[in-house]
């Protein structure tokens, strides 16, 4: 296997919260009829979870399924397993109108950790963090680019952006998490 490098190679920043590019993360876009039994079965086999409800994330054994749109899920799996799981999904859904495709390399993932993690994000996204559910995935605008975020721990958020703008997103997070810029 050749050298594989995530967008920012695990860059970190210590501000009033800790920011880290999370390294390589396996991601699979699965499109299809989310209500179908075949798809539910395939998801169960692939990541061990049920099909999440609207805007929800479900996790089992380190793998997750995220609701992205009415006909699209994003599956989080270990990076090295992604091609195999995508192939397996394609195989098991071959009779269905569905698409499973490995998008691990098209994305960058960030973790924002600390008691005031939501403050760093509150400056970048028009999202009401107070009413964001614990298992809710919110796709929105991160300053000038698209992104998805969710609470990945008691004091932690995970944010996903496109890979090409990872440097921009890191710059945004460094700016919004700078010590001294805490909100009240």
């Amino acid at each position: 296997m050749p050298d594989t490098v995530s967008a920012l190679n695990g860059k970190t920043y210590a501000g009033f919260v800790d920011i880290a590019e999370a390294g390589l993360q396996g991601m699979i876009t699965l499109r299809g009829d989310l209500a179908s039994a075949a798809l539910a079965k395939a998801v169960k086999a692939a990541v061990g979870t049920k099909v999440p409800d609207q805007r929800r994330i479900v996790t089992a054994g380190g793998k997750s399924a995220l609701w992205m749109s009415p006909d699209e899920l994003l599956l989080l799996v270990p990076y090295v397993e992604a091609p195999g799981i995508a192939a397996q999904l394609s195989e098991s859904l071959s009779g269905e109108h569905a698409m499973a495709v490995n998008v691990s390399d098209a994305r960058a993932m960030f973790r924002i950790k600390g008691a005031k993690a939501s403050q760093a994000l509150q400056k970048l996204a028009p999202v009401d963090f107070a009413s964001l559910g614990d298992d809710e995935v919110r796709r929105s605008r991160i300053a000038q680019v698209a992104g998805a975020l969710w609470k990945s721990g008691p004091q932690e958020f995970t944010l996903v952006s496109f890979r090409s703008v990872a440097g921009y997103v890191m710059g945004l997070l460094e700016s919004s998490a700078r010590p001294g810029s805490e909100i009240a």
Binding site: Q54, R55, S69, P70, P126, R138, R139, S140, R141
Partner: peptide, 12 residues
């Protein structure tokens, strides 16, 4: 109506 988010114009 597709995802239920009350989206402000900059998301649209």
């Amino acid at each position: 109506p597709c995802c239920g988010v009350k989206a402000e114009e900059t998301e649209l």
